[in-house]
Design a protein around this nucleic acid. Structure first.
Lengths: 348, 348
DNA sequence: TGCGTTTGTCAAAGCGCTTTGGAACAGGGT
DNA sequence: ACCCTGTTCCAAAGCGCTTTGACAAACGCA
């Protein structure tokens, strides 16, 4: 069944049917109803290839999927994709992925762009001075990045959360509670969000004349196991930190296991604030000691990014070029006043 | 630059240029050279949408990407995707993914098929009686599955490895070495490969009149952490198993950590055989005690599947409908004779 | 010389949509 | 009666490719 057949069936012209289907105003509501009804009955679906040829829009957004273990083993990315997908389905858009060797992302991105299969590009996992940025700018194709790239001119469209403020605020809370010895359980050190979170923490500390020793910073992929390992190292330090900032609830999961195994009490001996991406299977309120968190939904970010990207392609913007979402600092029980200095923690 | 312009530039007809480009025989070699040269100079690229409309082929294969933590956190899937991608790039094919809620895979698959954006479908992570199979068969679209679905009529095109034989052979080797107490570190219990591997082990054991106690079987996602946890449980059993079969080198990584921490020697106190998917970052020969493995490259499977799928779409088959790859049993140092029965292992 | 066969090329007809530029018709005002 | 303004619809022209059917030119062979 194609447009021609359908229009003949209805005794209308292709033009009218097409317009009825695409919501143009110059068609009688009664006619439109009749068309819609016929579509339902016949199961007519417009041919995508023809639509694409006629409009010049593929109805798709491209992304390169790095196949390094670090990346795809990342629960966070899946959650984000879910959001993207939800919104895309709503608009009948689809995703084209290009699996790529992690040290040829730029090439993969270019191939994807010139392949002619996509209308817009999306990139994530931004790093400092990210080499993909100049490449994206040189392309004449809309794109949107999730996150930012520290060290690059911020003249590109992005959606990011205010990582620096998040960790700055979290640190301030802990400082107010009297903590002075901090540690940071961060994501991979080359990623932009990790850099900014660290900066946020450092600047809150320096306002109080404190600093963050390098051995109190752990950079790793965000799995609970690595969180546990890092926390174990922190706990073995002679001057064990009492305030922990954690880049993910997944890392926190492991870290807390380490705390428990050391016989320490979360929220008493150790205060911990984690960034919460709102992963559906890992709710901070369900931890045995509910977690104080900085919250921002990764899935919502995915939805919003899809929205903007699709909007750009359909030209029904204008969308703000750059969005910086604030996070919410939600206090639960994993934070408490710093233990009195004479209390012994180290020797467990 | 489009075909028309290019052909005018060359003083040829569109027909001839098109044929020259697509390797048709009825065009003079000299002419073809001239065309190819012009393409290089002008940077002409055929419009995908037009090609697609004219040929009816989208040049793409679709896959649904389940967004459950179990799935995308799986290193193995990434490795497989890499293989798929390698081959697809070679043929200028692309992937369309549909992120999907894990309990709506069937719906997602259908939506993908009728979207008109793909020529063929691919599915993986087969389970027993997999509900996607009847759905795929009802579609009139080529598809290929990686793995099989036990309990379903095997009348669909698949590529699988002989999981049963692999673990049967591995078990036989260990039996010959005198082992009698076995344990199985398996993948998620609902997945077909896990079922078959268990079957392979069980049938080797039953030939010797042995059985596999249920508490000697662990089913979990294949991460090293879970491997370690499971192995720790095995080691605490009163009659600790001496022969371990392991569904992935990733699980083995964790399991071996547990063995070491228990002060046991791999290849002496405990023999272990792991299935090796040939993950580039985890080579069994580089383990401190090199691993005895059943080997079959996941990436190669990806390449082959892409090959077959693309071939089917381009109709240059026929490819075998069903392929069952044998695995290789490669003996290294993690296997050895069973410790003498009077030796004490349990009390560590 | 004439006749059948390749060989190399072309004009034109799709593929199934969207969109432009009218046209037909109705109703309202003069 | 006329013109004017909307409303509702249509015929036809693309979009940029592939593919069909035909046609000269060149060739071998009698």
């Amino acid at each position: 069944m194609n447009l021609k057949q359908l229009s003949e069936l209805l005794g209308l012209s292709q033009t009218t049917v097409s317009r009825a289907l695409n919501g143009y105003p110059e068609v009688n509501e009664a006619t439109r109803e009749r068309v819609l009804q016929a579509v339902k009955e016949t199961g007519y679906r417009p041919n995508k290839a023809a639509q694409r040829l006629a409009t010049g829009k593929a109805g798709s957004i491209g992304l390169v999927m790095p196949t390094a273990p670090d990346h795809y083993s990342d629960v966070h990315f899946g959650e984000f994709l879910t959001g993207l997908g939800e919104e895309a389905v709503r608009h009948d858009f689809h995703f084209v992925i290009m699996p790529a060797d992690p040290n040829d992302e730029v090439g993969a991105l270019r191939r994807l762009a010139i392949s002619g299969n996509v209308d817009a590009l999306f990139v994530a996992y931004m790093r400092g001075h990210d080499p993909r940025l100049p490449m994206l700018k040189s392309l004449s194709m809309p794109f949107l990045v999730h996150g930012r790239s520290i060290g690059s001119e911020p003249d590109y469209p992005y959606l990011d959360i205010d990582n620096e403020a998040a960790f700055y605020d979290a640190a301030r809370l802990l400082l107010q509670l009297g903590h002075t010895r901090f540690a940071l359980l961060n994501g991979p050190g080359h990623l932009d969000f990790a850099i900014r979170r660290k900066n946020g923490l450092v600047s809150a500390l320096s306002e109080r004349g404190l600093s963050l020793p390098e051995d109190c910073v752990s950079h790793s992929a965000m799995t609970d196991e690595l969180g546990q390992a890092a926390m174990e190292r922190f706990l073995q330090m002679p001057e064990c930190p009492t305030a922990i900032l954690c880049s993910s609830t997944v890392l926190a999961l492991g870290a807390i296991r380490a705390v428990n195994q050391a016989g320490l009490k979360l929220g008493e001996d150790i205060s911990l604030i984690a960034h919460d991406d709102v992963l559906p299977h890992l709710k901070p309120e369900n931890f045995s000691v509910p977690l104080t968190t900085t919250r921002s939904s990764l899935r919502a970010a995915g939805v919003r990014i899809a929205q903007r990207l699709i909007g750009t392609v359909k030209q029904d913007g204008p969308y703000p070029e750059q969005e910086l979402w604030k996070t919410e600092l939600i206090v639960r029980s994993s934070t408490g006043p710093a233990p009195r200095p004479d209390q012994n923690l180290g020797g467990v």
